[in-house]
């Protein structure tokens, strides 16, 4: 008897649960209003940031992000558009920062005469930024902020 009642209760709760699940048109802020079993329309592509203003690095080893558009810039065996501005000899004319000395180092830390082959494909490490507002915000805090939580006068 008790077993039967338990089964009925379980069935009822399952039914109730599933009906509420079905009734809810699941909409999360990420998917938008499109139902789960359908693919919503893709939002339009946003242009890349093109302010050419230096962006703060989040940690010292970070390859700085590219603050300008790189649409149509060719980087392959034939040529490297980035180097036509960022190479040492080009910086007077282009006013671009020279790629740092680490780009001339081989894996043993030896300095080469020109950009090291392992640093040739710039967009492996450097990326341009989209102007889209991210659907999920980022709560990353950098190390300085973490350290500044310390009490004033605390030990360094």
């Amino acid at each position: 008897m008790i077993k039967k009642l338990a089964m009925m209760l379980l069935a009822a709760s399952l039914a109730a649960g599933s009906s509420t699940l079905l009734a809810q048109s699941v909409s999360s802020s990420l998917r938008g209003p499109a139902p789960l079993n359908e693919e919503g329309p893709a939002p339009p592509m946003q242009p890349t940031k093109n302010t050419a203003e230096k962006e703060v690095r989040n940690y010292p080893e970070q390859p700085p992000v590219i603050p300008h558009s790189i649409d149509g810039y060719q980087v392959d065996m034939q040529g490297n558009k980035c180097l036509s501005c960022h190479a040492r000899a080009r910086t007077a004319e282009s006013k671009a920062p020279m790629l740092s000395i680490t780009h001339f180092m081989d894996r043993d830390g030896q300095f080469l005469a020109s950009v090291s082959p392992r640093r040739y494909f710039c967009t492996q490490c450097h990326v341009s930024q989209s102007t889209a507002t991210p659907p999920v915000s980022n709560d990353f805090v950098d190390i300085d902020t973490v350290l500044s939580h310390d009490k004033p006068g605390a030990k360094r």
């Binding site: 149509g72 060719q74 065996m77 034939q78 040529g79 490297n80 558009k81 180097l83 036509s84 190479a87 080009r90 020109s114």
Partner: peptide
């Protein structure tokens, strides 16, 4: 240069490397 087609081998072209 190269706004309409892919670039040729740019070694030796002034301003490129």
């Amino acid at each position: 240069k190269g706004i309409a087609h892919h670039l040729p081998d740019m070694r030796g072209v002034p301003g490129w490397q």
